[in-house]
């Protein structure tokens, strides 16, 4: 449970409340990870929170974490300047299963629909980078559907443009347009129908507010996507990442261990559709 000390080597403000930190270990090699996994990040003296990894494993270089300021620890993390230190434990949890496994190295030919709500794009960013990189090798088509409350809340704008240039279909919608917004307006689910993927041969990766994932998953299943091929990234309070602290339980799942990425099928759809309050 002792973190590895990392140094902030770059820091980018994404929106009014989201900061991306690039971290390098003070000693030793950078950790290996898979897109969708998370680390426990410590702001020394304040506390520790679970933050997803948003880099791609194929990138060499620092670890990327995008942190939204929603509490004492995430605020402290957002305020650490370049040269400051952050404690890192991980990586923990399940991944999006987009990284070709060493044994097979086979490219997935299915369409992939990535649906992100707000900062939900952070855990998906590495997966999209991996998928877009397989396009020249004949990998399946990539559809990136992004929903944000308003245009100023859209994160990773440069990545969205780069993915579009690399051949991905990138669609963005906002709930509340600004006067300068000429794009789509409405919930992210309204982008699904005309995106152009083939539901019968599609896998979907969803991350965002739980209600957004619930409605998106239902819509995808209604369109004919196999519920087992719809993956969602679920979030609960996490204090250890090791399956010991009990906070991340969702029914029979310990989300730090059995999640955060789980198929929207069977037990998970039940849990997501049932009242926990």
């Amino acid at each position: 449970m002792t973190p590895v000390v990392h140094r902030v080597v770059a820091r980018t403000r994404e929106t009014d409340d989201v900061v991306t930190l690039c971290l390098e270990p003070v000693d030793g090699p950078r950790m290996d990870f898979l897109p969708g996994q998370f680390n426990m990040l410590s702001a020394f003296g304040v506390g520790e929170v679970a933050i997803s990894l948003s880099g791609a494993p194929r990138d060499v270089g620092p670890l990327r974490h995008s942190v939204r300021d929603v509490g004492a620890v995430s605020r402290a993390l957002c305020q650490i300047e370049v040269g400051g230190v952050v404690g890192v434990r991980g990586p923990f949890g399940t991944d999006w299963r987009v990284t070709p496994r060493e044994e097979t190295r086979s490219v997935d030919h299915r369409d992939t629909v990535v649906v992100a709500g707000g900062i939900g794009l952070a855990p998906l960013r590495g997966a999209v980078c991996e998928l877009v990189a397989t396009l020249p090798e004949g990998g399946g088509r990539v559809f990136v559907l992004v929903g944000a409350r308003e245009p100023s809340q859209i994160v990773f704008g440069e990545d969205l443009a780069a993915w579009a240039r690399a051949g991905a279909t990138v669609l963005v919608s906002v709930d509340r347009p600004s006067s300068l917004w000429h794009g789509h307006v409405g919930l992210v689910t309204t982008l699904l129908a005309d995106a152009g993927f083939n539901p019968a041969n599609t896998r979907a990766l969803l991350c965002g507010p739980e209600i957004m994932m619930r409605f998106t998953a239902r819509a995808l299943v209604d369109m004919g996507v196999n519920p087992l091929a719809v993956l969602v990234s679920l979030e609960r309070n996490m204090q250890c990442g090791l399956g010991w602290c009990g906070h991340c339980q969702l029914g029979s799942l310990l989300l730090c261990r059995d999640g955060p990425v789980v198929p929207y099928a069977g037990i998970v759809s039940g849990l997501m559709n049932e009242r926990e309050r």
């Binding site: 506390g47 204090q239 602290c245």
Partner: peptide
């Protein structure tokens, strides 16, 4: 179930402790 908490001692030392917690606390979830 346990909480993981940081505190700062008067001499500036940071201490992280694990303490029993309960799913009956509102804060647990």
């Amino acid at each position: 179930c346990s909480d993981v908490r940081d505190s700062s001692e008067l001499d500036g030392t940071i201490v992280r402790r694990r303490a029993w917690s309960s799913c009956f606390d509102l804060e647990h979830s």
